[in-house]
Design a protein around this nucleic acid. Structure first.
Lengths: 235, 235
DNA sequence: CCGACGTTTCGCCCCGCGTCGAAGGGTCCC
DNA sequence: GGGACCCTTCGACGCGGGGCGAAACGTCGG
């Protein structure tokens, strides 16, 4: 017992994540947006009182922070480090069983494209990294000069991403695809630009994002006719 | 509620890790060696009966697997993916308070050099990556040709590491140093060689590893007189 | 073969945590 | 200004999970 008093004490953080209600809240916040307490209560399927108690614990444990706006309190993940832990846990978690057509559709939407906090994940995220690599824009955890030009031309703030204290362009194991998507400051900068340009937009399923027609054309032009994924639109 | 039935369900895995006894067991197994049930009970400071119940849950949840040897049952982490989750949790966990000289010493030993499952971590792990980088042996998540020659000459199975399904040489955020150490198949291959050569050996504190005199000389010769860390031996 | 040892299983007990309705406080909008 | 709305806090309750000692089971070694 004494031996381990000084090693990492991971139980408290894991305990914060371990409750299903809190896990649902944290997973919702992996969408990258701040959400109001009431919205989080709805999403987790509990009363406002229960959600409030859980949010207080997440705040106390510094997994989330809060931005009060009038009567609303918007909660968000405390940072990308928390997001990385959540996604890491997802890689060793079982896939939820699919029990209805609606659930099947939701699963497909999440697999196709979703935000992992501030960068693109799912098939789209993996496809983005593949395209960058195939085109000689990205190699060995960094952008090539060719890649810098491509993304800067698109409006991505590459210099800002390089100046970030965060890792620049690491490969991250994708939960659904079991291959790498692009994380780090660059992944975040690219995703920001994709949203700003309206090439991706948020869908009805929390955390799932949807490619727009404009985005399909823009990305095809960017990658010489190749799309990020081969998926037909999910109905 | 319906919304999140299909997203990652991370609560069960987090719940397995959240119990302090199970967290202690998992952290002990981060040392990289299989440990017997009785030993894990001692390390976690609980009875054999309690440890057994917890180990059954970890087995059922596939965080560990077991190798029976006669009356002994040796448990080990189910793979490097689990190790990555544990270390990820450690990066956002508070450092345990230090309350005695003994604890202070233990903390220093762990900070200096420890195994993170199968690769070197702590100052030594960070120093190793720094040395490889400074010497032009490693750049952007890969070995250079120069690095291949250096490590192959040392006896590291670089080709085997490249052939692994695992990521080759990713940078991993170190829990105590807040900088990167070398993970992946290469990190594991290097650590294996360091142990085989007797350059590092296991210390009395679980998970902490100790540089031998032979190792100090060997590494200094390898890196042109520079040591991995500047630490004086911890007494 | 038998006693020692390591481990698992069983049964019982206790504690902590999540839940909700109600109450209270603060903000918004007509 | 007042009602509606959002959110937090409080108190009580029930459930689940971890703990241990004892018993059972399997292996080892003299």
């Amino acid at each position: 017992m004494e031996y381990f008093a000084r090693d990492a004490d991971i139980a408290p953080v894991a305990a914060l994540i371990a409750d299903p209600t809190r896990a649902a809240i944290l997973t919702a916040l992996l969408g990258g947006r701040a959400l109001a307490a009431g919205e989080l209560a709805r999403v987790a399927g509990v009363s406002a009182a229960t959600a409030s108690a859980h949010l207080a614990r997440l705040l106390d444990g510094r997994l989330v922070d809060v931005v009060p706006q009038g009567r609303h309190r918007y909660y968000r993940l405390a940072g990308h480090e928390v997001a990385e832990v959540l996604e890491s846990l997802a890689t060793i978690s079982a896939r939820p069983p699919v029990r209805s057509l609606r659930q099947s559709r939701q699963a497909r939407l999440l697999e196709e494209a979703r935000t992992c906090y501030d960068h693109l994940a799912g098939r789209a995220g993996v496809g983005l990294l593949d395209r960058l690599r195939e085109g000689g824009h990205y190699a060995a955890c960094d952008l090539t000069e060719r890649g810098e030009r491509l993304l800067s031309g698109l409006g991505v703030d590459v210099a800002g991403a390089r100046g970030s204290r965060r890792r620049f362009a690491p490969e991250c194991l994708d939960w659904t695809e079991r291959r790498s998507h692009l994380g780090g400051a660059l992944g975040a900068a690219i995703a920001r630009t994709l949203f700003e340009r309206g090439w991706y937009r948020r869908g009805a399923v929390p955390r799932a994002v949807v490619l727009t027609d404009e985005g399909r054309q823009g990305l095809a032009a960017l990658f010489s006719g190749k799309e990020l994924t081969s998926a037909t639109p999910v109905t």
